[in-house]
Structure formats: structure tokens, C-alpha cells
Design a binder for these strands. Structure first.
Lengths: 193, 193
DNA sequence: GGTGTTGTTGAATGATCGTTCAAGATTATA
DNA sequence: TATAATCTTGAACGATCATTCAACAACACC
């Protein structure tokens, strides 16, 4: 008997993710959200509960998409080639709201320990790192990476390199594509001898 | 004939830098500043003009200190050893307001192109990178780094690695010291063969 | 000790913050 | 077509935002 919502919840979360990704947590006001989502306060709070709850949904969406993109890449090219291609892929997309990782931006802005959103983002970063670890282990099994190296350690370094790349890409006067290539070239040094 | 201020301007800027560094631009309110600096609005605006002007001063202070620390390290240990020691040094200081670089946090929060503070921070990052380039060049002259490599390219990668390290250090469950060591070990691969 | 200059105070400004809620609009079922 | 359930609207809330300013306090010089 009810009236049905005249908006697509999935599309709204996508748009909110892009807005939060670009402007950050404190930098995004309810006015901004109302304009971007074309929603009035009442509908917004009925649909999402609060600004923070929607940010949490946006983080979920962001992390899901990132994990899916990595998984697809690994399926298409195999573990080592995926790790090698991922940095360039992440930086190449110029339609993205920002070059920097939304998880990293969230951790930096809210703090990984003090704020619930920061904790969530930090957890997602850890989850991504363990995906990288799995890929490095698989690359070792495939004979593409020196089997004496520690996959967890490689993943930690790789994750850090990616975060640095994506911060650098936000700067002016930095050739992010060249930097991504340098990171990929660094991976070749891990090949068994 | 005038009355003299009852505060130490240098100390105030230091405290403001620490507060902004920890809480960011939008995350720091005038109430926060009044409490931390023990100043009432009138004194604050007479002394600094605006919140943004003080943030700019804090950025200057932060960049000066960073450059001075690097210069001291280079003087004490020589260029290559300084580059090798710097990552661990940056992460080791647990009295700092945050592990992440204040310049990077500013760029991520305000945008390197859209906001005056972001532009300033981006410029300071570029200036640090050119210091790194000079150190790599000096390390080549000293025979510590393969002379066929491009110092600017090495500096770009090194700067990115540092930014990644310092973002990672903000996360929970990341051994920043071990990561810093891995970065230092990576520099050894640049030695001439 | 008065005078002039500057620093400090704290209330007040208008704007914007995130959020609430009563009233009206819409639609599937009875 | 009446009813019930849900969604949407938009005004209003108290809190906080960065900033201003008139009144007061303090100190160097005549």
C-alpha cells in the first residue's frame, strides 16, 4: 500500500561517494549533499539516517568497487601482471573525483583510532593489503616472484607505494603516470634469479 | 608608547601548527584555537588576521622545520646516509601531532589547485623534492649512487615513498618502523655495481 | 602623572552547521 | 473510492561557524 521512493538508492550512494571522496568528511555539508542528491532533509534522513551513516555506506561502496576491480584484473592477467598493472590503472582514470585513495583521505582526516569512520577506512585498507598479500603469494606459486620473500612484507610495501603514488598524483607538477611506471619497474626486481 | 603583547608569537605559531597538523583545516575551529592558544577573538584577529592566515604561517613553520631537519641530517651523515636514515627518523618521533605529513594532509583536504592553502602546501612538497634531488646528485658525486640514474626521478620516487610511509603510519596494525627500514633497504639497490 | 598607542576582552553578528518534525503528496490494497 | 502505509516537503531548531567591534587595560614617552 505504500508509496515507493522516487530515487535510485544505489545511484544516490554512488553520487554521495564521489562527493565525499572529493570534498572529504568535514568539507561536505548537508547543503552540498541535498544539492548533489536532489533530496530535501526529510527524505535524506528517512533514507540514510545521518550524514555519517551515508558516509559509511559510501566507504563500503568505494571499498567494494576497489576490491572488485583488483579481482577482475587478477583474473584477466594473472597475479603478477595484475600487481604490475594496478598502479598505472589507478592513476590513469581521470573521471574519478580525486586521485588520492578515499580510504587514505578518510584515515588522515578523521584519525584511524579516534573516529568510527577512520577505523572503518583503516580496516578496509588492511583488507586490501591482504588481497595484495594473496596476489604476491600466488605470483610466487606461478614462479614470477622470488619464493624466499615474505608476501606480507611485500604487500605492506606495495600498499604503501600505492598510497604514496596516489597522494603524489594530487600534487601539481608531478607526472603520476611516470611514477606509476617506476613502481611497476620496481616489482621486476622481485623476480627469481 | 604602546602596550606590548603578553604572548610569544613564535610559540603560538608552533602550537597552532601542531593543532592544525593533528586536526586539519576544516576540523579545527576557532574555539579550538582560542583554547589552545589561550587567546580571545580580538587578540587573535589583531595578531594573525584570520584563521587561514594563521594556517599559512603554520605551514611555513612546518616546512622550515622539515627542511632544517633534513639539512642537519645531511651535514652530519653525508647525503646518502641522510637519505637512508630520514624515513626512520620521520616515523620514529612519537611526540609529533601526527605521523602523516602536514603538507600532504593539506593537499588532500583542500586540493592542490582549488585552494590557496593547498597550492602553498603543494609548492612546499615540490621544494622538498628538489632537496632530495640535490642529495641524490651529491650521493652520486660521492660514489654512493649509480651515476647513470636520474636524480630527479629518484627524488620523485623517494618523495612518494615517504608520503606513502607516513600515510601508512597513521593506520592501525602497520609496523611503520619496519616499513621505513624496507624503504631504506631499497636505496641500497641504487649503489653502483 | 598625564597622554597616546597598542593589546586584550567578551558580547554580538549573520551565516551555516546537522537534524527534527508536522503536514501534504503519492500509491497499493480493500 | 476510501484506507493505510510510506515518501517528500520545507520550515524551524539549537548549536556552532568565522569574524567584528566598542569598551577597557597596560605600558612607553613627554
Amino acid at each position: 500500500m505504500p508509496r515507493q521512493p522516487n530515487h535510485d538508492r544505489d545511484a544516490l550512494i554512488d553520487r554521495a561517494r564521489d562527493l565525499f571522496w572529493r570534498q572529504g568528511w568535514a568539507g561536505t555539508s548537508m547543503k552540498d549533499l541535498e544539492r548533489t542528491l536532489d533530496m530535501r532533509p526529510g527524505s535524506f534522513y528517512a533514507a540514510f539516517g545521518s550524514k555519517e551513516a551515508l558516509y559509511a555506506l559510501a566507504l563500503d561502496r568505494y571499498a567494494e568497487d576497489g576490491a572488485a576491480r583488483l579481482a577482475t584484473l587478477a583474473e584477466e592477467k594473472g597475479p603478477f601482471a595484475a600487481l604490475r598493472a594496478y598502479p598505472a590503472l589507478v592513476v590513469a582514470c581521470d573521471t574519478a573525483p580525486a586521485s588520492a585513495c578515499m580510504l587514505a583521505k578518510t584515515v588522515l582526516e578523521t584519525g584511524a583510532a579516534s573516529h568510527a569512520l577512520g577505523e572503518k577506512a583503516s580496516d578496509y585498507l588492511a583488507r586490501m593489503e591482504s588481497r595484495f598479500r594473496d596476489l604476491f603469494a600466488a605470483a610466487q606459486d606461478a614462479g614470477d616472484v622470488d619464493p624466499t620473500l615474505d608476501p606480507a612484507r611485500l604487500a605492506r610495501r606495495y600498499q604503501s607505494d600505492l598510497l604514496g603514488l596516489r597522494v603524489s598524483a594530487e600534487r601539481r607538477d608531478v607526472d603520476a603516470a611516470a611514477l606509476a611506471e617506476d613502481i611497476a619497474l620496481g616489482l621486476d626486481l622481485l623476480r627469481p634469479r
